[in-house]
Amino acid sequence: MIYDVLDDIIENKRDLTYEESYECMNDLISGDYQDSVISAFLIALRMKKENIDEITGLTQSMKDHATHIDYSPQDYLVESCGTGGDTLKTFNVSTVSSIVASAAGAKISKHGNRSVSSSYGGADALEDLGVNIELTPNQVINSLEKCNFAFIFAPMYHKATKNVMAIRKELKTRTIFNLIGPISCPTQVTARLTGLYNPDLIENIAQVSINLGVKRGMIVHGFDEHGNPAMDEISNIGKTKVGFIDYGKIDVKYIDPEDFGLEYSSREDIKAPSTPEGHLEVIGNILDNVTTTRTDKARMDLCLMNSAAILYVADKVSSLKEGVDLSKEVIEKSLAKKQLENIIKYSNE
């Protein structure tokens, strides 16, 4: 299929149908195409700008080729992650907020890889904290059942795309995989908090999420204090553009810290630490409810906002403010710290 459509994409910027896109992903992972052809296809798509059908078809094919995890809980199953590639690098917000939200009752299958666009990613942090990130499908299900959280290590479940991932690294530029990687979790995700590197993509990824079976969700991009695109997560230094998903409907709004009952913070206080030890210290301080300094409070607020959003899409709370209150409660009662201990324990069973 790639040979059939490549010239038309390059010369005429023709959009592919869902079916064509699905077949193109089959081609990409077949191993039958030279690296140069795959590279040309990926770059051609980016230059044209990928549409909803293309992202949906490519992602569904990737999910269909993944190692399946047969788990469908009665509650919403949430995936919380970001695309990376943003301009303001923060500490591991989605990691610690997922720990807090799962302690408060959200069921989270966190799908990811080792660090690509950040210096120290969520998988790196969890592994250094003692979490086994290389879980089998049965271990994923066991961990989700016993503590509401499991990390799904992408290379173990998407082995068919291994050759494409190598090409992606060589290209050293964004491709469609920056978008489809975070939304290709092999579990049956029904709720989603996904941060994007580009706010202009929110409506498209919200519709793709619906196409892939998501019922409730928030697709987000955070802005800085000057109104510039900055973060692939909810921002506490500026506004955040959100595509709210509610059973097939998409409502795009801008929210800010006041919608969570919190105040604006400074960018200097939420920047990523320079060392792995620094990242782990931030996570530890949040779980220990340390709010001594202005920086401590800013980091705590950013965690609370993103945890609140997870709880909201999981339908555990009726508002973002209520989500902050519940997140605060599990931290103050040391339930979030205990949750990390449980995650470590059950991931190693």
Score class of each variant (00 low, 15 high):
residue 145 E to D: 14
residue 114 R to P: 01
residue 132 N to R: 12
residue 136 T to K: 13
residue 118 S to F: 04
residue 115 S to W: 05
residue 143 S to D: 11
residue 140 V to P: 11
residue 140 V to H: 05
residue 134 E to M: 15
residue 142 N to Y: 14
residue 141 I to N: 01
residue 132 N to W: 06
residue 149 F to H: 03
residue 142 N to T: 10
residue 136 T to W: 12
residue 114 R to Q: 11
residue 127 E to M: 11
residue 116 V to C: 05
residue 117 S to V: 05
residue 124 D to Q: 07
residue 140 V to N: 05
residue 130 G to A: 10
residue 135 L to P: 03
residue 122 G to R: 00
residue 144 L to A: 04
residue 148 N to D: 15
residue 145 E to R: 09
residue 134 E to G: 09
residue 121 G to L: 04
residue 143 S to C: 15
residue 136 T to Q: 10
residue 149 F to Q: 04
residue 122 G to W: 00
residue 145 E to A: 03
residue 121 G to M: 08
residue 134 E to Y: 12
residue 116 V to E: 13
residue 135 L to E: 07
residue 148 N to W: 13
residue 115 S to V: 08
residue 117 S to T: 10
residue 123 A to P: 05
residue 130 G to N: 11
residue 143 S to H: 05
residue 122 G to I: 01
residue 143 S to I: 06
residue 116 V to S: 12
residue 127 E to Y: 13
residue 144 L to F: 06
residue 126 L to Y: 11
residue 148 N to I: 13
residue 119 S to T: 08
residue 142 N to R: 07
residue 126 L to N: 04
residue 126 L to D: 02
residue 116 V to A: 12
residue 119 S to W: 02
residue 119 S to I: 06
residue 135 L to F: 02
residue 120 Y to S: 03
residue 115 S to H: 15
residue 116 V to P: 00
residue 146 K to P: 00
residue 114 R to E: 08
residue 115 S to Y: 09
residue 141 I to H: 04
residue 134 E to N: 13
residue 137 P to W: 05
